[in-house]
Design a protein around this nucleic acid. Structure first.
Lengths: 238, 238
DNA sequence: CGAATAGGTTGTTCTAGCACAAACTTCGCC
DNA sequence: GGCGAAGTTTGTGCTAGAACAACCTATTCG
């Protein structure tokens, strides 16, 4: 009760889907929300499971994962604070299309799925903003397809690191440090390659001063060079 | 005028987004629509172009294409009759995310984009149905990513053909014939490989009685075998 | 504190499938 | 009815990157 009351309106009032709302509406939405903590490694929801809730990540990082029949894992995306997740109802699904696991300790709010339609009808701008989010995720997915179909492993890994650095890093004196634990294996699951190849690439890049990396840690020290690797056209050898 | 009046309500009344509508509503929607023909090879809309219209394909087949900076093409999906396309407004975009070209002669209806919000508000079930469509396309895209990241070329091509055969084929005495012109090059652009590799695969499969193929033509003669190729787990060699 | 475990590196081998080349077939069209 | 363009086949390299193996280094936890 007291923990519910303690949810501050500023927590969510700046987040896109809620940005255009009146203070009272935000209050209402918060009152309907349940906050929950997940510790690193915990599963927030599972692929194929009935989507009984949708979530807003307030703090921490979440990995969205799909698994093949053969047991291979693919990391579809990373969710950072301020993003909605598990929004199956938005796209007419009753079931989650992927699993979500907490990378570090996370704080989320969640609502029962049946409230989705209420939100969409009642709160001006909520629908448009979330559909914009959906649209962005479609574009991301399509770009990912384009990359997998046309680019070399080196470029794909370069792009993946660039995106992560832009999406979720802190700037240190070394450069842009990706601010959640990230293994070679993780990177390989984002790019459709093997942890060995990623390891070799990182080693090579470290020698060229493009990145610094350690156990579960990657720092981009020269974004310019990384970008030029990502943009390299493999066909342009004329 | 007379061509407009000639649009029959049965044309669209059975199509998911319109299925739940009253006859009058269907009439209204048809009256707002412009019909247009495209001949084989014509571009219906182009990637990055401002999305001024959304379309319903009434007859024919459309290829949805994305092009990389390096000039490579990727076929994102095929649209068959009865499907909406160019629905950028549904996902909060003002611009088309891909190009659409007519594979054979096509008949489409289109509406100005600004009618989208009217449709969503005014017609019960239109929103839910279209968001379901959006959801299906997201799933498709994610499956495609999974495939590209984890499967061998042979499986990807097998799957692509399976899907096409299911989605758009006529049954002849030979088997399921994909009912629009489809080249080796096209298949390679759907699966992220080269036309040479596709050609070799088709030749091999033809010898095994799985497919029959000719110029711009593919017939699946043994869906069961094709499916077992698609499902083959490359890791399962123990 | 020391063993177990998770993560990382690097060498070696091997092959799927790309690249390029060349010839063949089918089709549309003047 | 024959020419050119578009589509297909097949052969011959060749290499990116997967697979496997072995070893190393942090971390964690009893």
């Amino acid at each position: 009760m007291s923990s519910l009351r303690s949810l501050d309106e500023n927590l969510i009032s700046h987040i896109p889907p809620f940005r255009k709302l009146e203070r009272v509406d935000v209050r209402e939405i918060l009152d309907a929300a349940t906050p929950k903590r997940f510790s690193a490694g915990q599963t927030i929801f599972e692929e194929h499971e009935t989507a009984e809730r949708f979530f807003l990540l307030l703090d921490g990082h979440v990995r969205v994962i799909r698994t093949t029949a053969g047991g291979d894992q693919v990391i579809a995306r990373h969710i950072v604070s301020g993003e909605l997740m598990g929004i199956a109802p938005a796209i007419g699904r009753t079931t989650y299309p992927a699993s979500a696991v907490a990378i570090d300790d996370c704080l989320v709010l969640f609502w029962p799925t049946n409230l989705w339609s209420t939100f969409v009808e009642k709160y001006e701008g909520f629908a448009t903003e979330t559909y914009k989010t959906v649209g962005e995720r479609i574009s991301e997915a399509n770009n990912h397809i384009l990359e997998l179909a046309t680019q070399q492993v080196e470029q794909r890994v370069a792009r993946a690191l660039m995106r992560l650095a832009i999406q979720s890093s802190r700037t240190t004196d070394e450069g842009m440090e990706i601010d959640f634990p990230l293994t070679r294996q993780n990177i390989s699951e984002m790019t459709g390659t093997t942890l060995y190849t990623v390891s070799r690439l990182l080693s090579a890049w470290e020698k060229q001063g493009i990145v610094t990396s350690g156990r579960k840690k990657v720092v981009v020290t020269d974004m310019g060079k990384l970008k030029s690797l990502a943009d390299l056209d493999p066909m342009a050898n004329s």
